[in-house]
Amino acid sequence: MRPLNEAQFSFPSHSVNESFARAAVTAFLAHLDPTVADLTELKTAVSEAVTNAIVHGYRDAIGTVYISVKLYENGKAVVRIRDKGCGIPDVSQAMEPLYTTGGEDRAGLGFSVMQSFCDGLRVTSRVGVGTTVTLTKYFAPRA
């Protein structure tokens, strides 16, 4: 299925870019006239995925974070957040609530948030190659 509309962007993994990344994704979807709650949920999920790429994927160096947003029929939005960082050795362990390798002020909730706030979450990762997180969310047309 071909998307109706799409956008791509990338940026270096400086943490200051986290706010830009989530704002850019939500700005792209603004014309769908989503509810504030739906948009905030996706924005939060994107923020988690981008933070993971920066904190974990590129923990030893600055690398590039790639984001694509695709919009399909019926208000289906697919956001892909990709890094070419260190990869995750055990994806299912990383997705367990409260599991973290990020130090004492990381809650270990990133994947739980992505799961709860989106309609679909897919994570593919290879050690030494990188990680791709795909978030799917449906924005129902407003009555």
């Binding site: 905030t40 924005k43 939060t44 923020s47 988690e48 933070t51 004492e104 002020d105 990381r106 809650a107 909730l109 990133g110 739980s112 948030v113």
Partner: peptide, 13 residues
């Protein structure tokens, strides 16, 4: 206006 799970980390810490 917005927080992600870093806000939870901030609270728990």
């Amino acid at each position: 206006p917005f927080m992600d799970s870093s806000g939870i980390g901030l609270i728990l810490g």
